[in-house]
Simulated scan of single mutants.
Amino acid sequence: MVILDTFYDSSTFTYFVLPFLIFLSRILDVTIGTIRIVMVSKGQKLWAPFLGFFEVFIWLVAISKIFQDLDNWACYFAYAGGFATGNYIGLIIEEKLAVGIVKIQIITRKEAASLISNLKGSGYGITHHNARGGSESVSIIYSIIKRTEIQKVERIVKETNPNAFYSIEDVKSVSRGVYHPKPVRRRMRKGK
């Protein structure tokens, strides 16, 4: 026990180990907080409070260690660095989780029939109409998709019409409709 007390009072612990632990705890609590905010915006009523509990618990532990040693500037830098790093890691994790659904809006000057056909053929529900963009006629295509499907839809758009403009927006909820690809089944004729 005497060895631990000596270690806790050493400059190695005060200026290296403690700031490193604060840095790691800030990364963890801010990452959890970033994911919690996404869950709140997506209406995930069970995940948000669960994550919030751990976020605040970890934050309290980190901030209490800083208040115990207010003259230690290394802890301040570790706290700020952990906050910045936690935001970055939280956004990367959120991107990988791809929770929820989005609306993709595609605007194309080129004839949209082949793009519409390719999207429908891949199982995506779409709505489209013709419009006027400046002095040109354009086609506007809308689809509600799972966030995990964004890259697949982008690939279809780029392969079919690389010059198409598209935007993607978060959607909190939908009442009904086709917003995920369904397996395309080919009907077989009898006797073949």
Rank of each mutant, 00 (worst) to 15 (best):
Y179H: 13
R185M: 11
I104P: 09
G134M: 08
S167R: 07
V138Q: 06
H180K: 15
I37D: 00
G43R: 10
I3E: 15
V61W: 09
W73K: 14
E149F: 01
E154F: 03
F13I: 07
V178F: 08
I101K: 01
F83E: 10
S114D: 15
Q68K: 14
D5W: 04
Y88G: 10
S173H: 09
I116R: 14
F77D: 06
I156G: 03
I141C: 02
K96Y: 07
R185K: 14
Q105M: 13
P49W: 08
L97W: 01
G177P: 07
L18F: 11
M39C: 14
A62Q: 05
F53G: 08
I32L: 12
R185W: 05
L51W: 00
H128C: 08
I106E: 03
E55G: 11
E111A: 14
M188C: 10
P162A: 08
Y179S: 12
S10P: 08
G191S: 02
L91Y: 04
R26L: 14
I141P: 02
G81Y: 01
A80Y: 00
V38N: 03
G33M: 01
T6G: 05
K190R: 15
M1D: 13
F16Y: 07
N118T: 04
R176Y: 06
K45H: 02
R147E: 02
E95V: 02
G133D: 09
P162M: 09
V178W: 06
S139N: 14
V17F: 08
V30H: 08
I101H: 00
T12R: 04
E169M: 12
I144E: 00
G121I: 05
Y79R: 03
D71G: 15
S11R: 13
T85H: 05
F16L: 15
K172A: 08
S175G: 09
S135W: 03
F53I: 11
T108Q: 10
S41H: 03
V171L: 15
Y8I: 12
I3G: 04
F13A: 05
T12C: 10
S173A: 15
S173I: 08
L97A: 02
K152W: 00
S175W: 04
D29P: 03
I93Q: 03
E94V: 00
S11P: 07
T14Y: 11
E111W: 02
T108N: 10
Y142P: 05
F83S: 12
E55P: 10
V153C: 05
K190W: 06
G125L: 05
I37A: 03
V157C: 13
Y166L: 01
A78M: 04
I116N: 12
Y15W: 09
F16W: 15
Q105I: 11
P49R: 11
L18K: 15
G90T: 07
S139Q: 10
S135E: 13
G125H: 02
K120A: 12
M188G: 12
V40E: 00
V178N: 15
F165S: 02
E159C: 04
I116C: 14
H129G: 11
S25T: 13
F23P: 11
